Computed example of a mutant assay.
Amino acid sequence: MTRKLQTIGFDADDTLWHNERFFQLTQQRFADLLADHADAEHLDARLLEAERRNIGHYGFGVKGFVLSMIETAIEVTEGRVPGAVIGEILTAGQDMLAHPIELLPHAREAVEELAEGHHLVLITKGDLLHQERKLAQSGLGELFDAVEIVSDKQPETYARIFAQTPGGAEAAMMVGNSLKSDVRPAIEAGGWGVYVPQELMWTLEMAEKPVHPRFVELPDLGALPGLVARIG
């Protein structure tokens, strides 16, 4: 008997391992560096504007974040930002790129259990080299049948990826912490969307929960194998 669910897609950042908290710690470091030029709330708003403008140029990830911080520093200081501050911003970015991977609770157990009977695909946005390094360091890489590092996550992205997997989109599920990038577009492509929220969320990834029979919210990844078993 063929399973209803044959493919499980996993997001990486803040689904399998911690990520957003390092961005927020760096953003606080950035605010401290520019405290003489702008208050933290104003600086955060200007940085968010820069990130929104620059996604199309730089994509998602640490490198685009660092370039947006530099651009914001130039803007709020009217071009007078000291070279030492630019150096500190670059160092902060390098620290983010070098930070050890910390798996989220139940991530390893869920991936290992589901890998025994399902086709697993890692589907993540971000810088290619950085995401490859994080996956290798996580120790989970060998459990995935395929890895897709994409520039963005739209319904057509999932349609393309699931078309190459057993059973197609109808037999596929995407698991992630972002309603905007992981859940809603996967459902629109014909699959299941499983939302596993995290406490910290980047503003540009926020979206409304869908009302759909293929939408499920779980408290953590520990509940995922049971959900998959119930669907069949």
Rank of each mutant, 00 (worst) to 15 (best):
M1I: 05
M1E: 06
T2C: 07
R3S: 14
K4R: 15
L5R: 05
G9E: 06
D11W: 09
D14S: 01
W17T: 08
W17A: 08
H18K: 14
E20Q: 07
F22V: 03
F23T: 11
Q24M: 11
Q24I: 09
Q27Y: 00
R29T: 12
L34I: 04
A35W: 07
A35Q: 10
D36H: 06
A38R: 10
H42K: 14
L48K: 08
E51G: 06
N54A: 03
N54C: 01
N54M: 00
G56V: 03
Y58P: 10
Y58V: 13
G59V: 12
G61L: 11
F65H: 05
E78L: 12
P82F: 08
G87T: 13
I89K: 08
G93M: 09
D95V: 10
I101V: 15
L103N: 08
L104V: 12
L104W: 05
H106Y: 07
A107P: 06
R108C: 09
V121H: 13
K125T: 13
L128S: 11
H130I: 07
L135N: 12
S138F: 14
G139W: 13
L140V: 13
L143T: 09
D145Q: 13
V147C: 11
I149W: 09
V150G: 13
V150L: 12
R160I: 04
I161C: 07
F162Q: 03
F162Y: 14
A163S: 11
Q164M: 08
Q164D: 12
T165G: 01
G167A: 04
E170W: 00
A171S: 15
M174R: 04
G176C: 07
N177Q: 02
N177V: 00
K180W: 05
S181D: 06
S181Y: 08
S181A: 14
D182V: 04
D182H: 02
V183N: 01
R184N: 14
A189C: 04
G190Q: 01
V196A: 01
P197W: 08
P197C: 07
E199N: 05
E199G: 00
W202S: 06
T203S: 14
T203A: 15
T203G: 01
E205H: 15
A207P: 10
A207T: 10
A207R: 12
P210G: 04
V211P: 00
F215D: 00
V216H: 08
E217P: 02
L218F: 06
A223W: 01
G226T: 02
A229M: 01
G232I: 01
G232K: 02
G232V: 01
